[in-house]
Amino acid sequence: MSDNYGLFYAILGAALVASLGGFGSALGVQMGGKAAAGVTSEKPELFGKLLILQALPGTQGIYGFLIAVLVLINCGVLSGTPQVAMSIDTGLSYFAACLPGIIVLPISAYFQAKMSVSSINMVAKQPDSSGKGITMTVLVETYAVLALLASILMVTGI
């Protein structure tokens, strides 16, 4: 391995952000799904509404993947010309740029899932309030969006 193994850090960041985003979303969608399945057993007609609520914590995984792809594009990995000579500084910068995603995505997915479970229980009792439940649950996602934004701005700025 040469001295210029910056590319490793960049890819490490991309790998972590994609993995942790996916981990958070998998956990979150699972939590929502369990609650939704319970309600569906009693009220199958609510399936459509519950599915939306269940899917809400799923976006963090996509955001993590999005950051990872942007890093890979910028490092030339996707175009088949990886910048093998990337300096450690640059590589670590990419890693740092992934940090908002690495930290916020799994956590926000988990908490959004908790909110989604509460909303699912609310919809079970009051099917008409699904719009309100969706809105309250989506509020949590704002911070995942902001973290994504921070990461995107950093990655594209390097």
Binding site: L66, V69, T142, L148
Partner: peptide
């Protein structure tokens, strides 16, 4: 106002996913 950055987030994630599928 910052909340509207989600438009960018969603437009980009669907564009990037589409690109990856093509790749």
């Amino acid at each position: 106002i910052l909340s509207y950055s989600r438009i960018l987030a969603l437009a980009m994630s669907s564009a990037v996913l589409g690109m990856v599928m093509n790749m």
